[in-house]
Design a protein around this nucleic acid. Structure first.
Lengths: 258, 258
DNA sequence: AGGTGCCCTTGACTTACATCAAAGGTTTTT
DNA sequence: AAAAACCTTTGATGTAAGTCAAGGGCACCT
């Protein structure tokens, strides 16, 4: 059984690409179906063509490969065209913390601006394509287009707000609340990209979910099983179907629902 | 016994202000002793005068009062001139997560950009003065001065990176590691402002520290006591002296020291 | 088809931290 | 100066999640 997300992935997977999708790979922002996610809206044709120059090149990253890693010098932001990434930081003694999962239309690399060097690793969790946006281009065009300037600020602010809510998850929520919040967030973002709001295929392992949510893989697995036993979701390995979203929301926040 | 930080606080506390400090309250960015923290460096006099216009007004916030709260419409960023703040988010059922502590020279309000509304509360932990910087001013001047533009980007990126490391703390570290990291960070930031690198007076309660670090106030207290028993720090209520910073660093990261 | 390796699940046991409770300090109020 | 409110410390006990361990499923390789 394929979810919308699977179909999407198959179509966009470079290994299985048709001529049509190869063609779409070449289009600029102005013709990109993810434009509303990456770029501000409401431009005329002429301005849009100028905005196209924010993207210098594209890069294809194979599953498991790094887009950038801690210490790399920062030159560009990356807009994900297709695929799925995790970002993570690690301690010297090898403990890893996943700081986020990013999907098509999202921007990664913001961590590098402050020190001109990246402070985390970005790993492709599936074969992916990214638009390389040299940060000097972004800044230059931002000065010319206030709407783009505002857009860049919003993207950074959104990341700050997201991390605030992850801090709430990690600091105050119990294991099942964290997993419920995680699933709801994931499916909501997929839905915003035109996929199912009830079915998804996880692109990350239990261990990676656990790292993001501050729990061990066994605890993640137990929480999945518990949700399954209670009929809230159906789980089969990385396939997840949300059967009772209300109950999931209720777990995430007991006050909000019913 | 007074730490450098206490002296600083006494001088800048509006309640005990002398005429001299009232005068300094009126100076613009160009004459502000915190300029290097808030503002980019390397401007000529003329440009600096233009940059002064980024600050519209000042606001004095009394201890315990809110600078802004969740849901407030966003219009301005705030640069802390004097004082100390916490920012926090809360769930509907009343659980609170402190997302950060901010001191003089730091910028708060970035959370509001994405949705034009603030998504957290900013509470003064002591009587404080802030410079109100209407965000439209910031954006306008950013377009004119690339150095300011870059500065704004760096401030936002720094916040993202800070939150990444808090996620690491919350997700991977044990109670004592968290407290060690917290103390080292606090004292380092105070030192950057010219205060002691070994002594400080906490402006927040054990409960607020605990909220930030994802632990209960009793656990915070026990960790303080343990560090005290081991001779790593001296604690008396909110006064803390770091006696053996190396041991503290070793706790934070067993690999780095000796 | 069988082997290899990785990921996931589940059970038994352990532990770091939370919770509950009480007492002592410190600051604020009256 | 006494009272009240709040904060901090410390001890005793409870528990959610971690750790350890074993087995099973799935995908990839030869």
């Amino acid at each position: 059984m394929l979810t919308g997300y699977d179909v999407y992935w198959q179509n966009m997977n470079p290994e299985t690409m048709t001529e049509v999708s190869v063609a779409t790979l070449k289009v600029a922002c102005s013709g990109c179906n993810l434009r509303e996610l990456c770029m501000p809206v409401g431009f005329n044709t002429e301005d849009m063509q100028k905005l196209d120059t924010v993207v210098a090149t594209r890069r294809r990253i194979k599953q498991g490969d790094l887009l950038f890693s801690n210490g790399d010098s920062f030159t560009s932001l990356f807009a994900i065209r297709t695929g799925f990434f995790k970002t993570c930081v690690s301690t010297i003694d090898g403990r890893e913390q996943v700081t986020g999962f990013q999907m098509a239309g999202e921007i990664i690399g913001l961590d590098g601006i402050v020190s001109d060097h990246h402070s985390c690793n970005a790993v492709a969790l599936e074969d992916s394509d990214v638009c390389v946006m040299p940060f000097s281009n972004v800044e230059e065009l931002s000065r010319e287009f206030p709407v783009l300037q505002r857009h860049v600020h919003k993207i950074m602010s959104r990341e700050i707000v997201r991390e605030n809510s992850v801090m709430m998850l990690l600091g105050n929520m119990r294991a099942e609340e964290r997993l419920a919040a995680f699933l709801l967030n994931l499916v909501q973002r997929l839905h915003a990209r035109g996929f199912s709001q009830s079915e998804l295929t996880l692109r990350m392992s239990r261990e990676e979910i656990g790292s993001y949510l501050g729990m061990k893989l066994e605890t993640v697995s137990r929480a999945f099983s518990k949700f399954g036993d209670e009929g809230i979701i159906e789980v089969k390995q990385r396939y997840v179907k949300i059967v009772k979203p209300d109950l999931l929301k209720k777990i995430f926040n007991p006050e909000t629902c019913i």
